[in-house]
């Protein structure tokens, strides 16, 4: 009687302490806590197991858990850092941190490059291993870019002639593939983005600036839940 019981904070597997995540991302501890609110909401939308499954991710993006989308699939794959088919809380925060307005632009450019490297055909060349040069991720612009343009047109029920698609792809290739080897390496990609900054607009989410307003969390602040 008169006893004041603190409810034990029951965190699901995959949970990581906000203080640790805040130390390696641009987020504050409060913002990571707010992200946990968002994460909980997303991760219990279909299966309440503390993990975001592909269907839950699709449901959040499209209001439809069955909607297939090439680009959403790639985002999910990149967020799923452990490649185990689900997004854990730590993976969610670390991946979203690249989209923070204060995240380094170089990280945004690199993330987008990996996103568009559809089949992850990155290769390490012997000379580069020997000289410890940067790993060059090469991608076949013609094939992958055309595939992505077609996916986008299909998504929006737009029809363009094959010639028009080729024209858009070739024009982009002429500008981006300065070495004229049919591929874009990370160096060419950085140059191309510099000339076309609108390409990385999608890598900044202004919502991440107002997280604590949208998803207020009092758990860490008070150390007590459900009071």
């Amino acid at each position: 009687m008169g006893c004041f019981c603190l409810k034990k904070l029951g965190h699901k597997p995959g949970y990581e302490a906000p203080i640790n995540l805040a130390s390696e991302t641009p987020f504050t501890v409060n913002e990571v806590e707010a992200l946990y609110d968002l994460f909980k909401k997303l991760s219990r939308s279909i299966i309440d197991d503390g993990l975001i499954h592909k269907e839950e991710f699709q449901l959040a993006l499209f209001k439809n858990s069955n909607k297939q989308n090439l680009f959403a699939d790639r985002i999910f794959e990149l967020f799923d850092i452990k490649h185990n088919g689900v997004i854990e809380f730590g993976e969610f925060v670390r991946s979203l941190s690249v989209f923070h307005p204060n995240a380094p632009e170089a990280d945004k450019i690199a993330f987008l490059f990996r996103l568009y490297d559809l089949r992850q055909t990155g290769c390490i060349e012997a000379e580069e291993i020997l000289t410890f040069h940067l790993i060059f991720l090469l991608y076949d612009l013609n094939r992958k870019l055309k595939e992505m343009v077609k996916a986008l047109l299909c998504e929006n029920n737009m029809s363009l002639s094959e010639d028009m698609v080729d024209l858009i792809v070739e024009k982009t290739m002429m500008e981006a593939d300065t070495k004229r080897d049919g591929k874009i390496d990370d160096e060419e990609w950085k140059e191309f983005v510099k000339k076309n900054p609108s390409i990385i607009k999608i890598m900044t989410l202004s919502d991440l600036k107002e997280l604590t307003l949208a998803f207020p969390s009092f758990v860490m602040n008070s150390g007590v839940s459900d009071l």
Binding site: L42, A60, L70, F71, K171, I199, A214
Partner: peptide, 26 residues
């Protein structure tokens, strides 16, 4: 309508699958 001047990556970036703002909708 796809403007002829639009580069392929600008076009791709309009995909709904790349619009993560939807995650933050209440």
């Amino acid at each position: 309508v796809v403007p002829a001047t639009m580069n392929a990556f600008e076009l791709i970036s309009t995909s709904q699958g790349l619009n993560l703002s939807s995650l933050f909708e209440k």
